[in-house]
């Protein structure tokens, strides 16, 4: 027993409490590890049973770093379309889909034959403040491909892929052309 600041401090009691606390936290860490273990067992089992399991140990699997271009959301695009910036909308969907409906003022340059169309759109791309690549929906690997060509091979700066593609563009009710009334 000691006396500190006029109060009696029971050192043995304090030590007991500290030991209890440490033991209790050790228990929590063990439980935490068990929760992680349960989750890992479920995760690895279900992944193994999947039709197309994620190849966990592959260096070229889906989580490998890709050259995904930066995205722009419809919310961010909306004010830009109304502003003074020269926005070039490059619709990389197929000509059939483009003819059905497309963003107002957009040019069509299908991703598969992009280089065939490039000569036609190049003068506009050169003077644009921002090039927005429009693909079909969220799964926009072709949009990424075109954006990659524009940035890396053709040295265009300020290229963005529209997040959500044409589907999101329609939902955001941005100006469109070619739709049947």
């Amino acid at each position: 027993m000691t006396v500190a600041d006029g109060k009696r401090v029971d050192e043995t009691g304090w030590l007991e409490n500290a030991t209890k606390n440490a033991a209790s936290w050790r228990g929590e860490i063990l439980r935490l590890a068990l929760i992680g273990l349960i989750a890992a067992v479920f995760a690895l089992t279900t992944n193994y049973l999947r039709e197309r399991p994620v190849p966990i140990w592959s260096a070229t699997g889906p989580a490998a770093w890709r050259d995904a271009a930066e995205r722009i959301s419809c919310n961010d695009l909306k004010p830009l379309l109304k502003g003074t910036m020269k926005i070039f909308l490059l619709d990389v969907r197929s000509p059939q889909l483009f003819q059905q409906a497309h963003p107002a003022g957009a040019f069509n340059a299908p991703a598969h034959d992009f280089m065939d169309y490039y000569a036609t759109v190049a003068p506009y791309l050169d003077v644009a403040d921002l090039i927005v690549v429009v693909c079909n929906d969220k799964d926009c690997s072709l949009g990424d491909l075109v954006a990659h060509i524009l940035i890396k091979d053709l040295k265009h700066e300020r290229v963005r892929v529209l997040y959500g593609g044409w589907e999101a563009y329609k939902e955001a009710d941005l100006p469109r052309e070619g739709e049947a009334p």
């Binding site: 190849p55 592959s58 989580a63 490998a64």
Partner: peptide, 10 residues
């Protein structure tokens, strides 16, 4: 990639 895939699964 490997850690990313493991994380995505777990």
């Amino acid at each position: 990639a490997e850690s990313g895939q493991l994380l995505a699964v777990i």
